[in-house]
Amino acid sequence: MSWRELPIGGMVVEPGNSIARRTGDWRVFRPVINQDVCTRCLICWMYCPDGVIKLVDTPYRTSKGRVWSFTLEIDYDYCKGCGICAEECPVDAISMVEEVK
């Protein structure tokens, strides 16, 4: 790629293209959400510095019979394993599990 093809002045014209950098490989520990315990309070989603916790419209039926209309899922492509979600969860639904190769 030559100087002719770059946008001038170092501009980046594709918004949000940092999704090409999969920072998930930074992790040592990965957060795992226990969907049975999770109350869908959205605090983990709110605090995540990378915005990798997604609200997915997948209904979930807990073992006690409670039905939730949505679920929270973590995008492990980008999660850096900082542990803020696990720390902030008020019901301790998230545990940090060591990444084992």
Binding site: G16, N17, I19, R21, P49, K80
Partner: peptide, 22 residues
């Protein structure tokens, strides 16, 4: 719900600057 701040940035793991920007 809209995320106007994309993941893949180089902020340190756990740096709440990311949270603030979001």
């Amino acid at each position: 719900r809209e995320e106007l701040f994309a993941p893949g940035h180089g902020l340190c793991a756990g740096c709440t600057a990311g949270t603030i920007v979001r």
